[in-house]
Amino acid sequence: MTGFGDNVTKLGQSAIPFITVANSTLGAFAFFAYLAGFTSTLGALIAGVNSQARLQFNAGREGLLPRWIGKVDATRRTPVRSIFAFVSIALAIIGVWALLHAVHGGTGALNPITFFDESSTMGTVSGPGRIPALQPGPAVLLP
């Protein structure tokens, strides 16, 4: 908020507010903010899938979900099936979301920040007909 002079409109126009502030405050050193965002995402990806897949592995082991999810790899003793199932379904969700956007809304909104916004509330707060998801500005336009 301080970095945007308490101007919510300006903040709302920035796809990634922290990066915008880092660019204006640190100049070339803002690279470290980009790097931190990337390592944070990778860290959350690794730790999150590890943790959440184990939750389902445990549910499979206890018979609450199909038991095949609760099996571990014979050599490495890691819950491989649970991890594969988790990641495959997640990728499928992204694929279906992209397909639905392409069919109904065009590919203009087909960027991961829109997906992040919409999936975080399952489309109840941000999404078609509601608060629009943040759109990346020219500096972060996605191919």
Binding site: G37, F38, T41, L42, A44, L45, G48, V49, Q52, L55, Q56, F86, V87, I89, A90, L91, I93, I94, N111, P112, I113, F115, F116, S119, S120, M122, L142
Partner: peptide
């Protein structure tokens, strides 16, 4: 959790 992690998975490549 799968929906939540799908967002992280998407944003990893996106960022």
């Amino acid at each position: 959790y799968i929906v939540a992690m799908a967002a992280v998975i998407a944003i990893s490549g996106g960022f």
